[in-house]
Design a protein around this nucleic acid. Structure first.
Length: 949
RNA sequence: GCAGGGGUGGCUGAGGUGGUCAAAGGCGCCGGGCUUAAGAUCCGGUCCCGUAUGGGUUCGUGGGUUCGUAUCCCACCCCCUGCACCA
């Protein structure tokens, strides 16, 4: 396609570059295939690999545009960049689609992958496609199974009969992490508790390391905080209460052993095994049964809401206080959660709100054992639970009263340890990862159930256990419908046995794919340890915040677990994590209902209240209908424009608003950019002093660009490459620059900067300036350090520009004074004594002197002697002092340099006159014989007075 | 309730180790130039006042520290995100 041909459809904009052709060339040249060069550092750039739904959406485009810019930048800086892509292709949507529309999940998945791959490729991302992987490939999931059998050997994987979260709609169990507010994270359906035999991975073994590791990696604070919450470490004590008259012990966990003497009852969760035991056959049994029935059928979410109302039944039994032997009633209460801690609590109503409420409801004594002020009243009644740390009071044993906080807890714990009825312990909120799923489209758990041998792992040589194809969907677990799959001989004894039919949570797949990428074509091993160690860890990981607690915890866990299998030696998988913001788009908004509505309502009154609708930005969603199709945008504007818009519209981590106006404006920039080589190559052969300035500016821009990219400030980088440099070039030509040789030099560097965000256009440029090969495959040639001469060219220009700016600002007002257009102007440079004063003050302050003391110093200086002394000292306080702090480093250097303002401005005076539309400009030194204006008083170093006439 | 992150000019958004901040850039808007014209590019302007480079009022609200604060301290209000009777 020619750059100047308007497309056939006039309504559509045209793309000035044949992007697909360049993509083909990249592919043919294989420049994105990553190898290991001895003398090069590596850089591993990764995006969260996508689930292959049918289409690429804007979230994908944003995610990959960010990652691709980083990958291209690092490549051009000489790194071996590993930048792979694959598909997280196991999962329920494909299986559900198979059930809805017929067909097989395999076909549906492959079909979707083909279509999304094509769309991704059309964007021109620089992936190493050779390394592409897909979770549903047996060559990949074989290793899920291999790891599982190893974990099983080590006891890290185990089977347990336990209450689990069951999603009725999805007909499968869920991990705790997959239950959001009591509902399924996938279908939002209700989740109930069910007792089942299930497979778990004991992530708790790594809880402490997962917590500590957070301090060593560059994750955003909110993600770290999320993970810390999820891990939920709490320090406390486990305490044993004997049950009176029975051979039973109740274990409780508490974070507040210092309140042990305030215990007035002990509470068991209704599901606690001992609860039933204690009430069995007593008058309390039916009350317990009622509570149990009520609570256990309730979805967890409703139950937690219900806990606000304290419900409980007595057990009729008593526990014995571990230190005093006091008889303490045992209750069964709805507010105790069976699965946290030990499922039993020691209740201290005086110093715990829940216990307080419960005690009030059931008329149980409330005892004060802490005071909140040292020496406070130990007998003061408690109107509410006082839960802060305090000083122990009313202790029935010697040696405790008066102890505070940590010390108090320590003392009580010690006493318990001596008695053998308690110990310090750490409790975690995180629970073992339940990985069993009763669904088809996942990795089969490689286990065999034999009547004689029990559970037996499938031997390594028999892996992978492949998914059968002869299954029926829609009636429970499809794997149970395949006889060929189910029936197997026991690997140990050879007798007929039965395969495990659970498959693995798909988060298993995504927990190590980044390691597979390092050595994706290896048929012998999951990956070679040396290769993985070379490329890991991931230097830049980009994806959505929604994976902050599931994927990013599981992946960290797997990395550590695989390390401990000896497969590699990396502790943390991801170094730097960037969570890109949402892509939003306008949708109708009703201000009085505070409601976002579907775009179907645009232009009509609010369907609820009838008032007029305004617009508001909302997350793109099918239900609101405010999605923007990447495919259409690429068709209309080209991939480069879409990328430019996405990178420029907002910082990577911020939410961004889609704007039709915005993308159109970015497209204009692209069209303008496309003409730059012609423009620069078409310059004449006239070197000028401005060439030095332009070259200096180019060096400055390249340095700024690198600084921005190095901290992943993509927005700023794009601004430099696509906006600032154009402005610089305009300024250069405006000041008379016209040197094609310099034009080529600019383009050689600039093309690299441009290639980071708009690579197709960059290739076009590269070709136009006659360079060999592809810019995408070539390294950036660093420019030489800025010379002193170049620096001063920049400085002189800065002075000139600031004079021009202030001259413009006052021109209007001045002309009102003159009663007509100004004809000429005199630029009055500040007299030498002001600059001397400024430099002296800067030195004084930089050497640690206080501003306040400078007056004293000034009065000793030569410039302040004589009859003008008062005036000069006054000038300091009123004018110079505030200004001294306003000069930046460059200006300070300028003040101290040999810069002659009169000469610099005289050289530029024709230009200034022209810009201001004046006939002449005169530059004079203030208070000198040349200065006829008498207006030197308003001048400052670097800021002359301007007098119009 | 707890934790993390925020509140900046018409919108967006940078800065935030106190002075380079009336506050970048983008969008929008206004004016000029160019053009047969439109579009694009280019130039200038865009808090208020002002017979000359200055003054006034601004960075959620109210106080405070300082020669000086969008930037530091205290209190409060509001928004987002996550967790939540976790013992």
């Amino acid at each position: 396609m020619s750059r100047t041909t308007v497309g056939v459809k006039m309504a559509k904009e045209y793309s000035p570059v044949d992007e697909v052709a360049w993509q083909r060339k990249w592919n043919e040249a294989q420049i994105f295939e990553c190898g290991i060069r001895e003398d090069r550092p590596k850089f591993y750039c990764l995006e969260m690999y996508p689930y292959p739904s049918g289409k690429m959406h804007m979230g994908h485009v944003r995610n990959y545009s960010i990652g691709d810019a980083v990958a291209r930048y690092k490549r051009m800086m000489g790194f071996d960049v590993l930048y792979p892509i694959g598909f997280d292709s196991f999962g329920m949507p494909a299986e559900n689609a198979a059930m809805d529309e017929g067909g097989h999940p395999y076909d549906i998945t492959e079909r979707n992958m083909a279509s999304i791959t094509q769309q991704i490729k059309r964007m021109g991302f620089s992936y190493d496609w050779k390394r592409q992987l897909k979770s549903h490939d047996p060559r990949y999931y074989k290793w899920n199974q291999y790891y599982f059998t190893k974990f099983y050997e080590q006891g890290l994987a185990y089977q347990e009969y336990a209450p689990v979260n069951w999603c009725e709609q999805c007909e499968t169990v869920l991990a705790n992490e997959q239950v959001k507010a009591g509902r399924c994270w996938r279908c939002n359906g209700p989740v109930v508790q069910k007792e089942m035999e299930q497979w778990f991975l004991n992530i708790n073994k790594y809880a402490q390391e997962l917590l500590d590791g957070l301090d060593t990696i560059a994750f955003p604070e909110n993600v770290k905080s999320l993970q810390r919450d999820w891990l939920g470490r709490s320090e406390g004590a486990e305490i044993t209460f004997e049950v009176e008259g029975k051979d039973l012990n109740i274990e409780v966990f508490t974070t507040r052993p210092d309140t042990l003497f305030g215990v007035t009852f002990v509470t068991l969760a209704p599901e606690h095994p001992m609860a039933e035991q204690l009430v069995k056959g007593t008058e309390y049994e039916s009350a317990w049964q009622d509570l149990y029935d009520e609570v256990s059928v309730m979805a967890e979410f409703d139950r937690i809401r219900d806990m606000k109302k304290k419900k409980g039944v007595p057990s009729g039994c008593f526990a014995l206080h571990p230190l005093t032997g006091e008889r303490i009633p045992i209750w069964i209460g709805n507010f105790v959660i069976a699965s946290y801690g030990t499922g039993a609590v020691m209740a201290v109503p005086g110093h715990d709100e829940r216990d307080f409420d419960f005690a009030k409801a059931f008329d149980i004594p409330i005892r004060r054992v802490l005071v909140m002020d040292e020496g406070g009243d130990a007998d003061a009644p408690l109107d509410s639970a006082e839960t802060d740390h305090g000083w122990m009071v009313n202790s029935p044993l010697e040696g405790f009263d008066g102890l505070y906080g940590e010390e108090a807890m320590k003392a009580v714990t010690n006493a318990l340890e001596i008695e053998g009825s308690g110990k310090e312990t750490i409790n975690w909120k995180i629970r073992p990862w339940l990985i069993s799923r009763q669904r088809y489209w996942g990795t089969p758990i490689p286990m065999i159930h034999c009547e004689d041998c029990g559970v037996v792992a499938v031997p390594e040589q028999d892996l992978p256990v492949e998914l059968p194809t002869d299954v029926a969907f829609g009636q429970g677990n499809p794997l149970e419908t395949s006889e060929a799959f189910l029936n197997v001989d026991c690997p140990d004894c050879g007798k007929a046995a039965r395969r495990e039919t659970d498959t693995m949570d798909t988060f298993v797949d995504s927990s190590w794919y980044f390691m597979r990428f390092t050595d994706a074509l290896n048929d012998e091993k999951c990956f070679d340890a040396d290769v993985a160690n070379h490329f890991m860890n991931v230097d830049f990981y980009c994806g959505g915040i929604e994976h902050a607690q599931m994927h990013l915890i599981y992946a960290r866990f797997y990395t550590k677990a695989l390390r401990d299998l000896g497969l590699h030696s990396i502790d943390e998988p991801f170094n730097e994590l960037l969570c890109q913001g949402m892509v939003n788009s306008p949708a109708p908004w009703c201000d009085s209902c505070q409601l976002t509505l579907s775009v179907a309502h645009a232009g009509s009154p609010c369907p609820h209240c009838g008032s007029e609708l305004s617009e508001r930005s909302a997350k793109m969603s099918k239900s609101l209908g405010n999605t923007v199709s990447p495919g259409l945008m690429i068709e209309q504007y080209g991939a480069d424009t879409v990328r430019l818009f996405i990178l420029f519209a907002a910082n990577p981590t911020a939410g961004m608003d889609w704007s039709d106006l915005g993308i159109a404006s970015n497209h204009r920039v692209m069209i303008q950019m496309a003409s730059m080589p012609d423009k620069l190559l078409g310059w004449g052969q006239s070197p000028s002093p401005m060439d030095t300035w332009m070259l200096a500016r180019l060096k400055q821009r390249c340095a700024e660009f690198q600084q921005a990219m190095d901290v992943f400030d993509l927005r700023r980088a794009v601004e430099i490459s696509h906006y600032d440099l154009i402005k610089d070039i305009n300024w250069y030509t405006r000041r008379g620059g016209d040197n094609a040789e310099l034009g080529v030099q600019i383009l050689k560097s600039w093309t690299h900067l441009v290639s980071v965000s708009t690579p197709h256009l960059a290739e076009e440029w590269w070709q136009q300036i006659g360079m060999d090969g592809l810019v995408s495959g070539s390294e950036f040639e660093h420019l030489p350090e800025m010379t002193n001469e170049e620096q001063s060219a920049l400085d002189n220009d800065t002075v000139l520009r600031s004079v021009l700016d202030s001259a413009r600002r006052i021109k209007d007002v001045a002309e009102r004074h003159l009663d007509g257009p100004a004809q000429s102007a005199t630029i009055v440079v500040s007299p030498q004594w002001k600059r001397t004063m400024a430099v002296e003050a800067l030195d004084f302050i930089e050497q640690g002197g206080s501003v306040k003391n400078f007056v004293g110093h000034l009065s000793q200086m030569d410039i302040a002697q004589g009859e003008r002394k008062g005036e000069i000292i006054g000038y300091w306080g009123k004018k110079m002092l505030p200004q001294v702090f306003k000069w930046d480093d460059a200006s300070r250097a300028l003040l101290r340099s040999s810069l002659d303002e009169v000469t610099a401005l005289t050289n530029g005076s024709d230009f200034i006159a022209q810009e201001l539309g004046l006939q002449s400009i005169q530059v004079v030194l203030g208070e000198s014989a040349d200065d006829q204006t008498g207006r030197a008083g308003g001048s400052m170093p670097l800021a002359p007075a301007i007098v119009y006439a």
